[in-house]
Design a protein around this nucleic acid. Structure first.
Lengths: 376, 376
DNA sequence: CGTGGTGCTGCAAAGGTTTGCAATGAAGTA
DNA sequence: TACTTCATTGCAAACCTTTGCAGCACCACG
């Protein structure tokens, strides 16, 4: 019932190879023949069978995008950027959600392997060794994880965490909690490392609470624990947790930022809509999506896998690009952070130094950073 | 380089067909042979090529999910439910985002057509006739759109809009605005129809504002217009617009719900986290995803497309299930709606009547519905 | 011993497309 | 005229898998 290349060939009185060329190499066929074939194809409603085409060319013109949790607002901007970038290059993107489940991740890579030309692994939860192994099955680009020998796109959450801690220390907080995220998250490890260093550096105490589910409920679930710990400020693994935590604290009668300051990570749209508006480390998700697609396609074009007449020597030249890109993050100060118990009348802050913390002029509740005071 | 069935056959000293059967019909092969083949396959890291398998069986064990806007929090629960349901049936789901663009929709259906066994079209923006045409190319199930001859999953937003209007009328609002969504949205038309009828019924005035982009910015963009229109209550196309509107009104110094009441639709997670918490019409998104997958697989199993030895008579029996399922919606009253200018001291409300509007006992800002007053 | 059945395996076609090579014919060149 | 070049088209192999059919060995039964 589905109309194939053969039907078109019969209808237009040419060989199937001519029909094939009409679609995949039009310059090789006589203009008159071409229009005739195209007319017949149009007439019959012919569409090339992409599976069959993929089978012989080894290229599907699809790329797979594996996402830990599609419901996390962190990801949609990344997905959209990847899609638009891919579309420019005449590729389609298939997204798959793993529900933070490493098993599902592996399974989906296998499922996608032969139906896409490459896979973007976003914030994977599986082990590095498994990733390396899977990369032998299909070209991989990893986002938010460092894997030796594979192209990676990283967001500098270390720098972000440091800025956040420094911001809190500057506000007079001496006892800070870090709400950890999933144990297997690279971002999580980076944050712990950098936040720990920054805390030592600033001479303040850092309590790590976690791991936790990187969601609102994960955040609100630790509210009680945060209160008991007696810290005056919290850096959360992501905005969702930060927002959940604020909710949870609110329910406990603890006010943010008056009693506890909270900083998130990601700068999801939502963080501008809650009350108080969230101070957070903005991550360049769009750029990450675009970059990842570029790296994948670049590596992919070099080695058209499985094609036959690939001439001599290419078998050797499977030189993979193993570039690692690190993208900047940016602290955005809003209303969820305020002066801590050890806030001293601070010297007036210098003008924003270079590309550092960004402080939007907000007419709402003044943050400590905007309030001026006498030097100590 | 990639290892094929032939390599496994060679390594284990059997014919490729035996290898094939080891995977797709294990009971047909001698247990001893089977373990040997499996061992070799494991050894070599063999994975059946799904494209090739699909080419001959006509079944990919994938289903496509086309979504208007993945960044709209309305969709993720639907996606997740569809995925989990599909996974139970040993199917994988590929999600594609169209950015509310009908052209992208069509293109993606074509791209997916031969790589999936069926497509779920969620809140499509293209025309009914185009949908019908595409349905000849690949089995389709439509969500949030009524298309004759195709299986559809609908959410009863008409009922929802009616409840919302009645709720507002009951609170003493006489002049209500409806913030329309995308023109080509079935949901949008249904809401206008039902809200219009309910308004006439209640003897109140209904102003339709729109169409608008179904996002926060779409909502905040009409804030000024809402204020000028002088209405005391607004029913928005979805929660995102409602939240955007509340923000926009806030920026204009108009307080919600004191001066204007706002009702959304969808009950996204976010609607519980904003201040004020949003009164909204909850839609059963998870159920919709599950149902749609079920309907697709059911229709799909009946007609294994393109297989060869399909015996006699099946060509006739392509009887498609054209069931249409309508799912209930549910008004959830929170804090964004309050008494209107014509609120009369209401008689004490009767206990929640049956499965109607749901009013959670909320210790926060009392809504009009929970505040008691003297009878008129 | 012949017949029938059963359990396992191999053979080869089929699915829809791409593509190197060869064939054809026409046009251009010497 | 003979030879080359070029544009156009056809031929057939190849991609990897599934599956109906046939072959084989073996056993049991009569």
């Amino acid at each position: 019932m589905p109309v194939t290349i053969r039907d078109v060939a019969r209808a237009s009185g040419v060989h199937i190879s001519t029909v094939s060329r009409t679609f995949s190499a039009p310059h090789l066929v006589n203009p008159e023949t071409r229009v005739r074939v195209l007319a017949c194809a149009e007439d019959l409603g012919y569409r090339p069978n992409r599976a069959a085409r993929a089978l012989i060319t080894g290229r599907t013109h699809n790329i797979g995008l594996i996402i830990a949790d599609i419901a996390n607002p962190f990801f949609p901007p990344l997905i959209k950027a990847a899609e638009s970038q891919a579309r420019h290059r005449d590729y389609h993107v298939f997204v798959a959600d793993t529900n933070e489940d490493p098993t599902a991740e592996e399974e989906l890579v296998h499922a996608l392997a032969k139906q896409v030309d490459g896979v973007l692994l976003c914030s994977p939860r599986m082990s590095n060794s498994l990733i390396e192994q899977l990369s032998r099955e299909v070209p991989l680009v990893v986002v938010n994880r460092q894997v030796a020998g594979l192209p990676c796109v990283l967001m500098d959450v270390g720098q972000g965490a440091r800025s956040a801690i420094e911001h809190l220390v500057g506000l007079g907080h001496r006892s800070i909690a870090l709400l950890g995220g999933p144990r297997s998250s690279w971002t999580n490890r980076e944050m712990r490392r950098a936040a720990g260093a920054a805390a030592r550096n600033g001479g303040v105490e850092l309590t790590v609470l976690g791991p936790n589910a990187p969601t609102e409920v994960g955040g609100s679930a630790v509210a009680e624990q945060v209160r008991r710990s007696g810290v005056s400020a919290v850096l959360a693994y992501n905005d969702l947790m930060a927002i959940g935590l604020i909710e949870g604290l609110d329910a406990l009668g603890v006010r943010v930022p008056q009693e506890v300051s909270v900083v998130g990570v990601d700068d999801i749209t939502l963080s501008r809509l809650t009350r108080p508006k969230l101070t957070t480390v903005a991550t360049p998700t769009g750029a990450a999506g675009r970059t990842a697609v570029d790296m994948l396609l670049q590596q992919d074009i070099e080695s058209p896998r499985g094609a036959r007449g690939s001439g001599a020597g290419t078998a050797l030249g499977v030189r993979r690009t193993t570039a690692q890109v690190m993208l900047q993050t940016d602290l955005v100060i809003r209303d969820s952070t305020g002066p801590g118990p050890y806030a001293r009348p601070a010297r007036p802050l210098a003008a924003p130094r270079g590309p550092g913390p960004h402080c939007p002029a907000d007419p709402g509740i003044p943050t400590a950073a905007t309030g001026d005071a006498v030097a100590s």
